[in-house]
Design a protein around this nucleic acid. Sequence first.
DNA 1: CTGTGTGAAGGCTTTCACAGCC
DNA 2: GGCTGTGAAAGCCTTCACACAG
Lengths: 207, 207
Amino acid sequence: MPSKIDIPRKSIYRLSIYQRCLSRLKENGVETVSSDALAKAAGVKSTQLRKDLTYFGQFGTRGLGYNVSQLSRTIGDVLGHNRLQPVILVGVGNLGSALLRYGGFRKEGFEIVAAFDVSPNPARVAETNVTLHNIDKLATFVNQHHVKMAILTVPVMAAQSVSNLLVDAGIQAILNFSPTVIEVPEHVVVNSVDLAVELENLSYFIR
Amino acid sequence: MPSKIDIPRKSIYRLSIYQRCLSRLKENGVETVSSDALAKAAGVKSTQLRKDLTYFGQFGTRGLGYNVSQLSRTIGDVLGHNRLQPVILVGVGNLGSALLRYGGFRKEGFEIVAAFDVSPNPARVAETNVTLHNIDKLATFVNQHHVKMAILTVPVMAAQSVSNLLVDAGIQAILNFSPTVIEVPEHVVVNSVDLAVELENLSYFIR
DNA sequence: CTGTGTGAAGGCTTTCACAGCC
DNA sequence: GGCTGTGAAAGCCTTCACACAG
């Protein structure tokens, strides 16, 4: 098996998509799927799907295809989310509180276990199970609950300083929604979702 | 100038980022910037920045750098958003209503001009300037207001059918938040933001 | 015959190295 | 000297072609 660093980052993204497709197949009682069918559902070419899988081993049966639940479990292992992964959210503004209410994470193996803000407003977590804390409780909480992942939904101005707090507290992965580049040490991973950039990118392609 | 199709999609993404950096420089009264400084702010290598720009022409002065406001205007022209671009949002759930409240778009040249839902709930657009319509008013509105872009925040089950509605109404670009692949004709562009996939991707990289 | 696994080829993006201009 | 512009090289990812297994 190649070391993590040899595997295209895009392949990892696609694994997640494959897995979601597999879940739906499983719900529909499908037991076996060909690379062709699964690839079509995921919106990629079948050769790419097979290539992506070979980075981690051989899971198919030639002439037949893949066992749906087995492949799903294997991908889950690779992605490291067969058990529920706790996540904290920092910055409970409009976007932050919407994400707290968004149920889609749990199904995919993530649970937002707590939220933090510089000035906690309890109304913002109404109708959720999430507890809201002042941001100065962050480090203690992260340590006690062994949280490794954080969602960052603070204003641009605060992004870098809060990110530093997260890193110091021991957070290893950050999903950043602030439209700015944040600097982190080597061992911390950041994925950024930049809504305005996505819109601008679209506007380029409409003539 | 190379045709749109020859230009790496990633370059277009980076143009948006460069432009945001330029805006901040302009706010700070900076008039000239080197590729090195701008690249650092955008989190890329300076050679990449220069290469990205050459797809569209030559804008710098050797030995000096780039004129901030001039370069900003040029990139704005390329991205096609020097004038305010109207956008509609379909699916006013948690995420949808959060995006309506999120002010960050307007600064970047986009304005959400209306929202649509199968069962419009006025409470969801409280404290916004956005008008909420039943989804059967969609086609008429799009035509009357010459809207070309849409944000899609409906549940997975509805994603494809609503997407078809959008396409039929004449929408040319869709920013899709539903965690599923949507099929559209050749001439329509789709960017997908998949929050669960982003989280899963992160969880792979924490050991 | 069907469908996976995979080295090799091809294509796309980034980086290098340096020419050219201020 | 400083910094941009750019062809060429390198690196990365996707696709092809086909060997191989059921």
